[in-house]
Amino acid sequence: MRYTDAPRRREELLKRLRASGYISASHAAADLGVSEMTIRRDLHQLADDGLAVRVTGGARLPDGAGVPFEQRTDHSAAQKRSIANAAASLLDPGATVAMDSGTTVARLADVLPPDLTVVTHSVPVIASCADRTDLRLIGLGGIFHPVTRSFGGPAVRTALRNIVVDVAVLSATAVGSDGVYCSDPYDAETKQAIAGAARSVIVTADGSKLRARAPIRFAGIESVAVLVTDDSAPAVTVSAVRTAGVRVVLAGEPR
């Protein structure tokens, strides 16, 4: 469907921007059936209106205007629950597991098996684990970031330099054959620190994330041991990720 009407097209661009935090001009042009130059003009207008910030190749949400945690939690909720259950089955008893602030990871916190040590900066994960007597919980404090409902900054990164975990479970805005991406520089720094503290990295991402784009690569695909996604993920991307040496688990499929 071609979006030739400018107000309607900009409304669609803003909807996509709010859903993922970042939009690629070239991909938006292809999706909406207009030229990339037209999309660039639209993004400039959104930036002039204070609704977006232009970056190389597209636009991102302004600082402090990220998608609310609750809204992101509701997106693809059934897939996230299924992915969380599949990821939980990969965690060995006695393991130390670092968990980031993503909404799929928050779902995982609700179904964690017993006898784990959980290291996290995520307030929802802390809340899920706090009353469980069969888990050990290490909370990482720092500067509170309302959009991600998590703590971050130098204090968190310093703490992670002194911790070694068996597994890091990370979320992503986008996943491709070359790496794992997010749209928030603040969040990217913490994800990198968590991955750096781990012997193994699991990425949880619903199928839409394997079709998405985001501006900040926080991990190369070679650093990921397992990708847990669902059967809506595009087969070509799943194949490319597997070719890169990553084990791909499709939630709901027998293993």
Rank of each mutant, 00 (worst) to 15 (best):
R2V: 02
D5H: 15
P7F: 05
P7V: 03
R10I: 06
E11S: 15
E11C: 08
E12I: 10
E12V: 14
L13G: 07
L14Y: 12
A19V: 07
S20N: 14
G21M: 04
I23V: 13
A25G: 11
S26V: 13
H27I: 09
H27T: 13
A29Y: 07
L32A: 08
V34I: 15
E36T: 15
E36A: 15
T38V: 08
I39K: 06
D42T: 13
D42K: 11
Q45V: 14
L46E: 08
A47C: 10
D49W: 13
L51S: 10
L51H: 11
V55K: 07
T56A: 11
G57P: 04
P62W: 08
D63L: 08
D63P: 07
G66R: 03
V67R: 11
E70V: 04
R72E: 03
Q79F: 03
Q79P: 01
K80W: 04
R81Q: 14
A84K: 01
N85L: 15
A86T: 03
S89I: 00
L90M: 10
P93K: 01
A95P: 00
A95E: 05
T96M: 05
A98V: 14
A98Y: 02
S101H: 03
S101G: 01
R107P: 00
R107T: 00
P114D: 11
P114R: 12
D115Q: 12
D115G: 06
V119A: 09
H121K: 04
A127M: 12
S128H: 13
S128D: 09
A130N: 01
A130F: 08
R132T: 10
D134N: 14
D134W: 14
L135C: 10
G139D: 02
G139Q: 06
G142S: 09
P146G: 08
V147T: 15
V147I: 15
T148Y: 07
F151N: 12
G152H: 11
A155H: 14
T158N: 10
N162S: 15
I163N: 04
V164Q: 13
D166S: 12
A168N: 08
V175F: 09
G176M: 01
C182S: 11
S183P: 01
D184L: 06
P185Y: 05
D187K: 00
A188F: 01
E189S: 11
T190E: 06
A193P: 03
G196M: 05
R199D: 14
V203N: 05
T204F: 02
T204H: 02
A205C: 02
A205P: 01
G207P: 03
K209Q: 04
L210Y: 09
A212L: 02
R213K: 12
A214V: 09
P215G: 04
F218M: 03
G220R: 14
G220K: 11
I221Q: 06
E222K: 15
E222T: 08
V224G: 05
A225K: 09
D231W: 07
S232K: 13
V236A: 15
A244L: 06
G245K: 11
G245S: 12
V246M: 02
V246R: 01
V248Y: 02
P254K: 03
R255D: 06
